[in-house]
Simulated assay, not measured.
Amino acid sequence: MTGSTVKPWQIAATLAWVALLGLFFAQVEIQIEGAAGWAANLPTWRIEHHWLLDIFWGGRPMTGYHAWVFPFVALFFHFPLLFLGQWSWRLEARAIGCIMLFWVIEDYLWFVMNPAYGVAHFSPAHIAWHKHWMLFAPTDYWVSLLAASALLYFSYRRKS
């Protein structure tokens, strides 16, 4: 697709596919974690406090579960580039933008579809592991959506 004219339906299809992946993975995590989000009850190692967690992880603990699942998802989103034998900065931006969008959608749907939460409990009062909120959502969502939008815009814009 690099170098060719991208049709609006291709962008819409990509975004819809990322949302579908987010929905399915949210359900997987609901089945794994139940009501105890952020791997709270999983048999995994945890680093609760470290200054790097405040910078890169929003103050949340680092767990063995997340240490494996985050690169797993990144590898999944990069597989089409490997499979097709194509790489460019535009395709890399698209992959990273899709990963960021995926995690926002997946995380939000985890709360919406989780019987222990639902939309009514999507707030800082009920979600201790999202420590920083702006308006009605964790600040991670806003930062990720802004970065994902910029990356996807770059990846889909016409070459001048």
Rank of each mutant, 00 (worst) to 15 (best):
G3C: 04
V6K: 06
P8A: 06
W9S: 12
Q10K: 09
Q10C: 08
I11R: 01
I11N: 01
V18W: 12
V18R: 07
V18Q: 03
A19D: 03
L20P: 05
F24K: 15
Q27L: 11
I32A: 12
A35V: 07
W38V: 05
A39C: 04
N41I: 14
N41W: 11
P43I: 12
R46E: 06
R46D: 02
H50D: 00
W51E: 07
W51Q: 01
L53M: 00
D54M: 11
I55W: 00
G58E: 05
P61T: 11
M62S: 07
T63Y: 06
G64F: 10
Y65W: 11
V73T: 10
L75V: 14
F77A: 00
H78Y: 13
P80R: 14
L82T: 10
Q86H: 09
R90T: 09
R90V: 03
L91F: 14
L91D: 07
E92D: 02
A93F: 05
A95E: 05
A95Q: 05
L101C: 05
D107N: 04
V112T: 04
V112A: 08
M113P: 12
P115Y: 09
A116W: 03
A125D: 04
K131D: 06
K131P: 08
H132I: 03
H132E: 04
W133C: 02
P138G: 11
W142D: 04
L146P: 13
A150C: 11
A150Y: 15
S155V: 13
Y156Q: 09
